[in-house]
Write a protein that binds this DNA or RNA. Structure first.
Lengths: 188, 188
DNA sequence: TAATAAAGACTGACTAGACAGGCAACAACA
DNA sequence: TGTTGTTGCCTGTCTAGTCAGTCTTTATTA
């Protein structure tokens, strides 16, 4: 049997890229990422054809992981408010526990190396959350607003809240509660 | 007497940089910016010592212009809600009228070439708006939240709203109203 | 008014360095 | 020994910033 192409090294590169991007930005040399991953300079390109391909994979991976963390342990029965709050808490927890991934994701998100296809795929992983939001706003003042707009507003409030939580961890809980209450007031 | 160094060319470079950044991103070559400004390659550096210096100047200039547009024609007497809405409308109008500047500012804002000093100065130009927000939230449920946090929430809602307005201009007015109402609900 | 000089704004070819990706050689396993 | 993953050196390309020199305008003089 041929020695299998190591998925571990693939993951190592993705993780190394996260760390390096946080520290040095997207213009960081591939050589640095390879070194951080404990892999030879040229090996980088046996795992990812180009730097851009790596970026697109990393974007999707982090986004998918985040979506999965957000949707963990849902109780299907709960009231809309409770349901949304559960998701909110998962979201904020993930952000506090994974500041690097969040930071890297933010950088990747504004890069023009991320293709529309990748963005669309990333958006798709968030679809269940959008659906949940639909129920939460169903009877409130935003019921006639465009679906995507409400989602964008929620997302922007969440991002701002997460920024403050990571920047001032001592008051993280406070920000989380205030942020969610603000969101709920907006929806109802 | 020496011929005066042309402020027009300085402005031309700043304007050219805005256009080029929107089209090509921050990694666009200085040569391209110089060409777009109708200035020789090397002249770029007689107006701005380095590319980073240009970026910092541009960031501040756009931010200051935006703040000035937002604060235009204020009537000091009005009710908090009216006062805030006036500012909101100015803000949205500026965004719709200057999509390129907004886009360039967004790119510059996430760049790590913008120094903390520059960010602080940019923040300062928005101080009057923050003050106004203080009055608007004074009697609402967010009166005990940290000042900067409320400002960040307002800003994030405004950004999301402006995104949708520029992306779907036909419904711009609708988004503007819905966005402001959402903000006000959040504050009260 | 015309000729000359001085100043300094402006130019663009050039350089030094950085980096993405290629590739020829190598190592490990069957 | 053949096959395949892995290596790290190499190269072609790109670009920020430099600098020796040109050009334009103003000041001075006759």
């Amino acid at each position: 049997m041929p020695r299998p192409r190591s998925d571990e090294k693939r993951s190592a590169i993705l993780e190394a890229a996260t760390r390096i991007i946080v520290m040095q930005g997207l213009s960081a040399p591939t050589a640095g990422i390879a070194k951080e991953a404990g892999v030879a300079n040229g090996s980088f390109f046996t795992y990812f054809e180009t730097k851009t391909v790596l970026f697109n994979h990393l974007y999707l991976e982090i986004k998918a992981e985040m979506a999965s963390a957000i949707l963990k342990n849902r109780s299907a029965s709960a009231e809309p408010r409770e349901e949304l709050f559960h998701v909110w808490r998962n979201w904020m927890n993930w952000a506090v526990s994974n500041p690097q991934k969040r930071k890297a994701l933010a950088q990747l998100g504004v890069s023009d190396e991320i293709t529309p296809d990748t963005r669309a795929a990333g958006h798709k992983t968030m679809a269940p959350i959008a659906e949940l939001l639909e129920r939460a706003r169903a009877h409130g003042p935003m019921q006639k607003a465009r679906k995507g707009f409400v989602g964008a507003l929620m997302n922007s409030i969440a991002e701002a809240t997460m920024d403050f939580m990571t920047q001032d961890p001592a008051n993280a809980k406070k920000y989380s509660k205030e942020g969610f209450d603000a969101l709920w007031r907006m929806l109802n």
